[in-house]
């Protein structure tokens, strides 16, 4: 925190402002195009293709995380994603997910709970205060970002449904809709995407359900309208576009565990000491910045989460 703030680290502030202007312009132009099409004219191309964002929330104003890392640019966050439901290319989802339907959207919460029920996305946004959390996101592919998420702690949702004493794990499921998500036809992967957390991991305050980033609604390629974010685990744990959350007794088998059991474990905690056969886990590259940096144990959240794994051999439970 005591690290001096370089002037280059201020950019995201400016970005916020320019984005607001952009949204304002977009709305104006959208209104104009609506008006024009109502008059029977050809609507101008461009702005109407923009996702209909809700207005940005008031930002926390921070341009760095608690360790002084600069936020990754909005364009890089929405332009470089892993979302195999759309494409295995990093820029593929940005193109292919633009017409992804995120409204209406509901999430079924059930399993070992007292109050099984479904929540609409609007309900979730109004039930819980949407707060900004700046987290490092460390992909298993040895790249990372610093992202200002908007969302709420998962435990708030779980407290409403009241897990019973049989509940030991939480199982999450992504929408399965190959018509909208062409990548789900790729037979190399057993879709739908499944992820899981131990109940105590899910109840940890750092674990959030994200609905937005940079003060805007999530873009489809980032997992709209609702995704998990577990900042001390590799990015693939943070499952996107969730339709189902179940409290279960057995450890769920995630898509990546099924697809590569020797490469991807259930815990998938960021750990520089547990190597992966393909990518360096000792170092990482921060998107938008040059050079490699050391990867931190639990992605730098060791103080907050290490106790969850007391007595466990993290090279076995990787």
């Amino acid at each position: 925190m005591s690290k001096p703030i370089k002037s280059s680290e201020i950019t995201p502030e400016a970005l916020y402002l320019s984005r607001r202007r952009f949204i304002k312009n977009t709305l104006t132009m959208a209104a104009v195009s609506l008006y024009l099409s109502a008059c029977g004219n050809q609507s101008p191309a461009g702005p109407t293709a923009q996702p209909t964002d809700s207005l940005p929330l008031p930002s926390a104003g921070a341009s760095v995380d608690e360790l002084g890392n600069t936020l990754t640019s909005y364009d890089d966050i929405i332009g470089y994603t892993n979302y195999y439901e759309f494409s295995t290319d990093k820029n593929g989802p940005t193109r292919l997910a633009q017409n992804f339907k995120t409204s209406p959207w509901s999430v079924e919460v059930g399993g070992y709970v007292n109050n099984a029920r479904s929540f609409s996305i609007d309900e979730l946004k109004s039930l819980f205060d949407q707060e900004e959390r700046i987290y490092r996101m460390r992909c298993v592919e040895a790249w990372s970002m610093v992202i200002p998420w908007v969302g709420f702690s998962l435990h708030k949702l779980l407290e409403i449904v009241e897990p019973t004493s049989d509940a030991r794990f939480v199982r999450f499921e992504t929408l399965y809709d190959p018509d909208q998500m062409p990548g789900q036809r790729n037979s190399f992967f057993p879709f739908p995407y499944i992820e899981g957390l131990r109940l105590d991991e899910a109840m940890h305050d750092l674990t959030i359900m994200a609905t937005g980033l940079y003060g805007r609604d999530l873009s489809p390629q980032n997992g709209a309208p609702l995704r998990l974010v577990v900042p001390w685990k590799y990015g693939f744990k943070s499952i996107k576009s969730i339709v189902k959350i179940d409290l279960v007794g057995e450890m769920p088998t995630s898509l990546w565990m099924a697809s590569g059991p020797n490469e991807y474990g259930f815990y998938a905690n960021v750990n520089p000491n547990v190597p992966h056969p393909r990518w360096s886990q000792a170092t990482e590259r921060r998107i938008g910045e040059g050079g490699r940096i050391d990867t931190l144990l639990f992605n730098g959240y060791e103080e907050e989460v290490a106790y969850l794994y007391d007595g466990m051999d993290l090279s076995i439970d990787f």
Partner: peptide, 8 residues
């Protein structure tokens, strides 16, 4: 324009 991760 080599993506956000040009080295990759």
């Amino acid at each position: 324009s080599l993506s956000a991760n040009p080295i990759e």
